[in-house]
Amino acid sequence: METLIGLIGLAIVVVVYLRQWLLKKDIPQQQTTSYRGELYQVGEACIARRTNTEARTTVVVVHGFVENFMYFTEHYDDPAIELIKLTCADYHVPVSQPTYTTANWARTPDYRAGTIAYDAAILNLALEHLVTTRQVRVHGHSRGGAVALEAARQRPDLFESVEVILEAPVLPQGKPYAQVPAIARWLFPFFLVAWQQQPISDRNRAVWGSLENPRKRELIWGFPFNGRHCSTLVTNIKDMNRWMAETGTDSYRCVQRGAIVVPARDRVLDPRAMLSSARQAENLQIIEVEECSHFVILDQPEAIPPLQHG
């Protein structure tokens, strides 16, 4: 019996130490693209800007959990758009051979990296210092939707004339599609290793919806490699759950116009809870998208309100 107890104790110690190692180890980057534009390193995040003197509209995009800004690239490829793309804290910047521009406004936020509040502060720096047009849209997907709302809570003055598009978003009083027990969250570093071996499998196939779009498949294959460290992804998960539970729907008062896009077949977030929360947003249109997964911009891009150039 003592031997068995000793072996069990040793196994627990090994698992705990292995988890700590997995939390801290570098995750290899899998996806990059060529990029012509400015890159600003801000704290542990990055802001990319593609602009020109003919730009009439600015779009600022914020990716979701385990995503990167390539999620938005094709949808906003019009050269008449000044496109500003946020890479959230401690995520890989999906740019081959990046070169950064220094800026005196690029200060580190007074929040913990990996939280919605941290990335929201980065978004506000982009709105305050990089936007050069009068017509502005902020488009956040999933966790990026919460980042957009939190940014408006932090600096409502910056959002007075901004159009906000919240696509399949993490919302105040929202819920995940399936509740994950605490032990499963603790084991996430081990799950991530398994996910990296097979990003699309029979176990997670239902989450993705249709995979006929080759670009969608390509982006999903990169998901488990987009974070730089598993510890940041764990922080993301804990903070998203806390933010949804503790943030009141009065935060919608800080945005003046735009839309919340709710996919009916979302298997990441609960669409019923999403709708219930969205109905409290008096200034935002609700767009329900039938037969659509969590990834609206890839499945049914026509559901995203068209951009009105100034």
Results as ranks from 00 to 15, higher is better:
Pro301Cys: 10
Ala303Arg: 02
Val66Glu: 02
Leu171Ile: 11
Arg49Thr: 15
Asn241Asp: 14
Gly209Asp: 04
Ser96Gln: 03
Lys85Leu: 03
Asp26Leu: 10
Ser142Pro: 00
Arg265Glu: 06
Arg155Thr: 11
Val42Glu: 04
Ala89Arg: 07
Cys46Gly: 04
Arg215Thr: 08
Leu149Ile: 15
Asn226Tyr: 00
Ile8Pro: 03
Ala48Ser: 13
Ala278Asn: 04
Asn236Asp: 15
Glu246Thr: 14
Ser277Met: 08
Gly37His: 08
Lys25Trp: 14
Lys216Glu: 07
Glu74Thr: 14
Gly140Lys: 10
Val170Trp: 02
Arg19Gln: 14
Gly248His: 15
Ala126Tyr: 14
Ile297Trp: 04
Ala117Thr: 01
Arg279Thr: 13
Arg49Ala: 09
Gln173Pro: 00
Phe188Glu: 08
Glu302Ala: 02
Arg155Glu: 08
Asn241Trp: 13
Gly145Val: 07
Asp77Pro: 03
Asp266Trp: 13
Pro305Arg: 09
Leu158Val: 14
Trp105Cys: 10
Pro94Asp: 13
Glu218Asn: 02
His294Val: 15
Pro156Glu: 04
Glu163Met: 06
Thr99Trp: 14
Ser251Phe: 12
Ala55Ile: 07
Gln198Tyr: 06
Gly227Asn: 02
Tyr111Arg: 08
Leu269Met: 05
Glu67Trp: 00
Arg228Cys: 07
Pro224Gln: 05
Arg203Trp: 11
Ile260Trp: 13
Glu44Asp: 13
Val268Ile: 15
Leu187Gly: 10
Phe225Glu: 00
Asp239Val: 10
Ala45Trp: 08
Arg137Leu: 11
Val162Cys: 13
Gly37Glu: 08
Pro94Phe: 07
Thr108Ser: 08
Pro94Arg: 01
Pro79Trp: 10
Thr53Gln: 10
Ser161Ala: 15
Leu211His: 12
Ala273His: 15
Asn204Phe: 09
Thr249Gly: 00
Leu187Asp: 01
Gly258Leu: 06
Leu269Asp: 15
Tyr35Thr: 08
Val147Leu: 09
Asp266Pro: 08
Gly140Asn: 04
Leu18Trp: 15
Asp119Arg: 01
Glu212His: 09
Leu4Gln: 05
Cys88Gly: 12
Ile122Ala: 01
Glu150Met: 12
His139Gly: 05
